[in-house]
């Protein structure tokens, strides 16, 4: 079976790199400040015999190609044709984070939402209803506290069931520009 490609996308400093490290066992530098991941990083994950290539995209607030980071993220989501885009969101700043999600939705890419930092959100008295997001958008939504390892096995289980999704709209060259 061919490799599946999974892209991690999200706003800066929402814990993409922490999740990337947890999934791939790599030690990419993780820090509490936005903009650490300047270029995209690649790692491997094997679950239940399935070979997954995990791509950590630079954090962006939108997909309009205004900065190199946005361009990298956009090109990969649109032209790299990942088999799934795992959109990591800071649950404590849900509304602002969802803007990027809306833009990823528009690309038509297969998508999984990960609501990260739910511990911080709960501490702030925010109540999140992931099932509402899941039913409305029609995609899986996972709650997570990646720094504590919560929600990780759930995501892995989900990735294990992943099948290669044919995207007929886009065949041919995988490079747009």
């Amino acid at each position: 079976m061919a490799d599946l490609t999974i892209a991690l996308a999200g706003n800066p400093n929402v814990g993409k790199s922490t999740l990337f490290n947890a999934l791939t066992g790599k030690h990419q530098h993780v820090g509490n400040w936005p903009g650490k991941t300047v270029a995209k990083q690649e790692g491997k994950l094997i679950i239940e015999g399935k070979h997954l290539t995990i791509i950590d995209l630079p954090g962006t607030y939108s997909l309009s190609a205004h900065s190199p980071e946005e361009e990298i993220a956009r090109n990969f989501i649109v032209c790299g044709r990942p088999d799934a885009v795992v959109n990591v969101l800071d649950a404590a700043n849900l509304e602002r984070n969802l803007y990027l999600s809306a833009q990823i939705l528009e690309t038509g890419a297969p998508m999984i939402l990960v609501l990260n930092m739910t511990d911080v959100a709960t501490a702030r008295g925010l109540q999140i209803h992931p099932e509402v997001l899941s039913t409305r958008l029609g995609i899986p939504v996972i709650t997570m506290a990646a720094s504590r390892g919560q929600g990780l096995s759930e995501l892995k289980r989900l990735l294990a069931t992943l099948a290669r999704t044919p995207r007929e709209a886009m065949v041919g060259s995988s490079v747009c520009a």
Binding site: E95, L98, Q103, Q127, I128
Partner: peptide
Amino acid sequence: QRYRFVHDLAAQALTRPKTPSLT
């Protein structure tokens, strides 16, 4: 319009505390 869409979505998926505490 995209922001409005996001705002509606967030409003449904999120219950905020009545008085947002100063963290």
